[in-house]
Every structure is written in C-alpha cells, then in structure tokens.
Design a protein around this nucleic acid. Structure first.
Lengths: 259, 259
DNA sequence: ATGTCTTTGTGAACGCGTGCACAAAGATGG
DNA sequence: CCATCTTTGTGCACGCGTTCACAAAGACAT
C-alpha cells in the first residue's frame, strides 16, 4: 500500500480520525457492490468481511459519522452509500489534471475507477511538444504551457503527477502556484509544498521493497542466513574510530563487518 | 499513500517495527542520490530533510538496525546504503511476474524503478490470447496457461496483479498455488489469501478519495456547508424505527435526514 | 405487552509510533 | 592531554489506533 501523508501531522479532521477516513473508500466500494446486487441491509460482520477489516473497527469507524445502523438489523446499504459518499465529498464533481503522459499517465487516464467516483479528468498535460494534440483516453494531450490556464479555467484543485522524478518538483510548484491544493504524486521524489497543500504519494518500487523484506524474512526462517557472507562489494565506513561494533537489538545480527 | 498490509496484524518482524521497514526504502533512495553525488557522510538532520521525515525518527529507525553512525560526524553514506539494502533483501535478485498487461501492467513493465532495485521482471502474463507473443517492454507477453510453469521455472515468489477486479482473486489463487508468497495488488478488490502470504494493495481511486475528503474539508472551512441540501436522490433507511436522530461527535453535523 | 434474540454503539485497556530532550560518545583544536 | 563542540542513540511521555467486551436498543415472536 503506497501510503504517506505530508504536512498536518495527525490533525483529526472534523473529529474523524485519519485512519478512519482512509478506510471509508474501502467500505464504500463494498457497499456499492452490495447495492448493485440489491442487498437492502448488511450487518457490521458481513460488511467487515467484505471490506477485509475487523467488525469492531468498522462499527467504531461508522460511529464517527453518526448512528446510522439499526440494532438487531444492521446498516441500510443505500443510505450508508449516500452518507459515506457525502462525507468523502464524492457527491460533487472533482476536476483533475494528470501531468506527465507516459506509460503510467496514460494508464491513469484510462483508469475507470476515477470517473465512477466523481472524478473527472479535466486535462492531460505533457511537456513533450510531440505529444501535444495526440488523443489519449479520448482526450487531446495539452502542452505544459497551458497548465495554468487549464487549472484556472476548470477550477481544478486536485493534480496528479506522473512525470519523471526530475520534473516532479517543478511541476508541483506550478500546480500549487496555479491554485491546486491536493496532489497525488507518483514520481519517486519527496515533494515540498507550502502549508495547506496535501500531498499523497504512491510509490511502486517502495511497495515491492517492503514485500522483499518480508519475503527475505520468510526465507530466512528456515535457512539460517549465510547470504551475508556471499558478496565482496561491501563498503566500509570512512570514519576512523572503532565503529565496527554491532549493537543490534537482537543477538542474531552477524558481528562481521564487510571489509 | 496506498497502504495496507494484510494478515500478520503487527508482527514486529525480527525486532524491526513495520513503520520503520516502510521508511527504509525512502532512506535508501535519498542515500543513493547522495552516493551518486559522491557525498561521503550525512548527518541525521540532512538525511531526514532529504527523505522528508523527522530527524529523531530517522535516528530511532537506524537504531533498530544497529549503531551505524559516528557521533559528531554522522552516517557513512556507502556503508548505510549497503546495510539498508541488505536489510531489505535487495542484495539478492527477486524475479517478479506481472499478471494483466493492460495500460497499467504495461506501465509497470516499463517502470525503471524495479530493475534498479534488484527486481527482475521474469515474465508478463495476460489472459488475452491476442496479447500472447506481443512484445511489451522488450518481453514477449505469455498466456495465462503458462503461469504455473513460469513461476516454478524461475523460482518466482513475488507476483504483481494488474488485472481487472473480477479476475484478481482467481489470478491470486493460481499464483499462491504455484508458490508465490508475496503479492502486490493493483486491482480494486480485497484478496483473500492463506496464512503466510503477504498482500500489499495499491489503489489509485482510494488515494484520490482521501484527497477529496480533505479538499472538501478545506473548502468547507470558509463557506459553511450548504451542499448537503442540494440534491434530492438521497435514499432513506428501509428500517422502521426512528433512525433519523443524528448523534455526530461534533455539533456541526446537519440534523436533516434526506427524504 | 412481555420476553428473547440479534446487532449496534462505545467505554476502557492496551500497544505501537512519534517526538522531545538529554546524556554519552567521539571528533577536533589547542 | 584537556576542553569544547557536534551529533548520535535512547529513555520517557504522550497520543492515536485497535481490540475486547458488554450494556443498550430495537426487532420479532408469542
């Protein structure tokens, strides 16, 4: 899960915990599926299973929104869909711009999950003049020169950055200057933004690295680690002193220092 | 940030907190950049700024790995790169399969961030026979029929699912049955997996919805909410009783119930 | 109307993560 | 060798998030 908020450390927004907000879309998806199957009500137990969470957690989450359930029965599906949608701000239309129409940007433009949730792709923007005018996902790609005008004309407040890492900060600055206050960043960089601008980051390679960590751990449980002695390219610290002592929290850290 | 682990609730893996593990790739990226600029050492303050975190947090994170710094000087960049890489399991090669070669799958296949971190795309797999053999990112797309053989032949333990939601669980089951124990899921579904299999989820639409929530909140700070009265399609609960009372945690929740 | 049964809503306890603030360690200069 | 200065490593406290467990609420049958 690519996660990561920036700024506003843990500001419990309007009394709703951040962790709960992050789960609301999950519930909404499960509820939408139930709604399409014309299921009238669900218990917290059933819905929790469908969303992949604990039922107590789900009930506590809903309790932050108000008392929308009926004891002995459960939750009314349609009503809950509406309440969560409203809470998340999905009853209104959110125009979005995607900057950087490479492989990933094109994939995002074609992604159906946006439109179905109240997000409308207002424009696709790329710095490459050769891309300008080319249709992607039914929209003509605009050149970066038009960025400010597009944002202002469409009242865009959410921007998606899918550029290479090197261009991300510059694009971010222009988006913010033009009035964007929420950014979804796919570029592998830490963006710095002024106060009041929200940034969320999705980093594909980080997710894989976390999986690799757990995978390595699983593999290491059976076979004791001998991989630490296989390489020879291990650099040594440049500092003088005896920094070769190891004080790992466990005793299983090999005391060898790569030469 | 698309985040979300599944199973193993908070198993502090080998003494390293999950939150720390999630930040190690961040540090690694910042350190790699420093390494390329031939910077010999960094202080926790500098590195923390580059990674976008608190310096105290960074020092505590590193303390879980051992004492790799030198007081009065800082951390040796090359040495730290090596230690974190080893800790994350990136000193070895991880063959990966990507299932579902649509727009997103193709974007992932072309993503450079994988190969540079020890991940090797062993195969691209798609269910569409028309895709079979077509080259994507320099690799010929394989048909789903070959899934089990590919995984077994290449010793693949990490799978990436980029299929439509409907196919995800089935693909997941086949991956797991074939020996995959870590899955990165881009399909908007909750996957159920047996014990011992790690699943991480990246959901593009969820990230946008979280941004929309905060965006709505920002907008609502100035203009008091009047949008709640604009629509007419609000469903009412099917249950009989007087469920129309609202007991929101704050008093700012409108007490009107959509008719 | 009364009793039973189901399911919600939440009080309370616990654990993890974060950040402060400082002592210990070592570099550096005289 | 001593003093000073920088920076790490960590003890401690605090707050958020999770989970348990149960009382309250309401549906439903009799």
């Amino acid at each position: 899960m690519a996660t990561g908020r920036t700024h506003r450390p843990a500001t419990r927004s309007r009394g709703i915990p951040e962790a709960t907000v992050a789960r609301l879309p999950l519930y909404l998806r499960a509820l939408t599926a139930l709604s399409e199957r014309s299921v009238p009500t669900v218990s917290s137990e059933e819905l929790a299973a469908a969303a992949g969470v604990n039922s107590a957690k789900l009930r506590k989450d809903f309790s932050y929104l108000g008392s929308y359930g009926t004891r002995g029965v459960g939750y009314d599906v349609e009503y809950l869909v509406y309440q969560i949608s409203r809470e998340l701000g999905l009853t209104q239309d959110w125009p979005v711009v995607i900057v950087g129409i490479g492989n990933l940007g094109a994939a995002l433009a074609n992604y159906g999950g946006f439109a179905s949730r109240g997000f409308r792709v207002a424009a696709l923007i790329d710095a490459d003049p050769a891309m300008a005018g080319k249709p992607v996902a039914g929209l003509p790609v605009k050149h970066t020169d038009e960025l400010e005008a597009i944002i202002s004309d469409n009242g865009v407040s959410i921007g998606v950055i899918a550029t290479p890492a090197g261009a991300a900060q510059q694009v971010c600055d222009r988006l913010v200057a033009a009035g964007v206050t929420s950014i979804l960043n796919f570029a592998p960089t830490v963006l710095s933004v002024p106060e009041g601008v929200d940034v969320r980051k999705v980093d594909l390679s980080i997710e894989l690295q976390i999986l690799a960590f757990h995978e390595q751990r699983k593999a290491g449980e059976d076979a004791a680690q001998e991989s630490a002695a296989q390489e020879s390219a291990a650099p040594a610290p440049a500092v003088s002193g005896g920094a070769d002592r190891r004080k790992g929290p466990d005793g299983d850290v090999p005391a060898v220092m790569p030469a």
